[in-house]
């Protein structure tokens, strides 16, 4: 591999593992010609289509909205489609790609997200609407919506979940992604069940399990802050009844125009 030292080629090291045939994971190297604007996903695609079709990974939208291609690149969880290849090349001309940690490997870079989705379901991600549904929309102020953007933007890629050291030890923990979803519902003035939600997430597997290591913030490709959402949920859980009363009061006026100052 005389190309190895050349500036134009990158050594892409991919963790290979098919549990049906392999005893343990191994790193396999591929030489990829670096092209302008190439992302890590482009490099994987090049390898799969022309070097080794058995290299396996998930991908779809290629612009950071579908959440398929979260993986561990040089030790950091991120989306392959948004990561420029040249930024990841180390001094020896190498990039190392592994599957998301703490999750069972299905094949190569594809992980089993079963527990991730179970926790998502557990927080009942759907809105529980109030009894009185207006003919038109519920009225919400731009500020109320603004608060939800810090959770609504989540693409459920799993980068945070599989960076969380608590998840590494205990898969019963609800996890940053599902707590962020719970936060979205709790904060939404249209939701009629914030009290039950707060009671659930304040239980043994919930917000108090978070060790505030902040890995999830570093991992999130959307720049979200699950730790802060968890902090907020802890505070709200402590004054749950007051919060529920305030919600009931707010819901008396959900059909009325927001008064503009």
């Amino acid at each position: 591999m005389s190309q190895n030292g050349s500036n134009n080629f990158v050594t892409v090291r991919i963790q290979r593992y098919n549990p049906e045939v392999d005893k343990k994971p191994r790193l396999q190297e591929y030489q990829v010609k670096l092209k302008a604007g190439m992302t890590v996903l482009d490099a994987l695609h090049e390898i799969k289509t022309h070097h080794d079709g058995s290299v396996t990974f998930r991908r779809s939208c290629r612009h950071g909205i579908c959440g398929s291609c979260a993986m561990n690149i040089n030790g950091r969880n991120t989306l392959a489609c948004e990561t420029p290849l040249k930024d990841e090349v180390d001094s020896r001309g190498r990039v190392t790609i592994r599957p998301l940690p703490y999750l069972p490997v299905i094949k190569d870079l594809v992980v089993d997200r079963t527990t991730f989705w179970e926790q998502y379901l557990r927080v009942k991600p759907w809105l529980v609407p109030p009894d009185n549904i207006p003919e038109k929309e519920f009225r919400m102020s731009p500020e109320e919506v603004e608060a939800l953007h810090s959770a609504e933007t989540c693409i459920m890629c799993g980068a945070c979940y599989s960076s969380c050291t608590v998840i590494g030890l205990n898969k019963r923990y609800i996890g940053p992604h599902a707590l962020l979803k719970a936060f979205l519902r709790v904060l939404d003035p249209r939701d009629a069940a914030p009290g039950e939600r707060l009671a659930d997430i304040a239980g043994a597997d919930g917000v108090y399990r978070c060790h505030t290591v902040f890995n999830c913030i570093d991992a999130c490709p959307k720049g979200l802050n699950p730790t802060q959402a968890i902090e907020t949920l802890r505070k709200l859980a402590q004054k749950r009844q007051k919060f529920e009363a305030a919600r009931r009061e707010r819901q008396q006026h959900l059909s009325e125009p927001i008064s503009v100052k």
Binding site: P142, V145, H149
Partner: peptide
């Protein structure tokens, strides 16, 4: 309106529509 009643997070006008 059905989307909105199901909890979809829409941007809003100042009066909340």
């Amino acid at each position: 309106y059905q989307y909105e009643h199901m909890g979809c997070v829409f941007s809003r006008t100042p009066d909340g529509r």
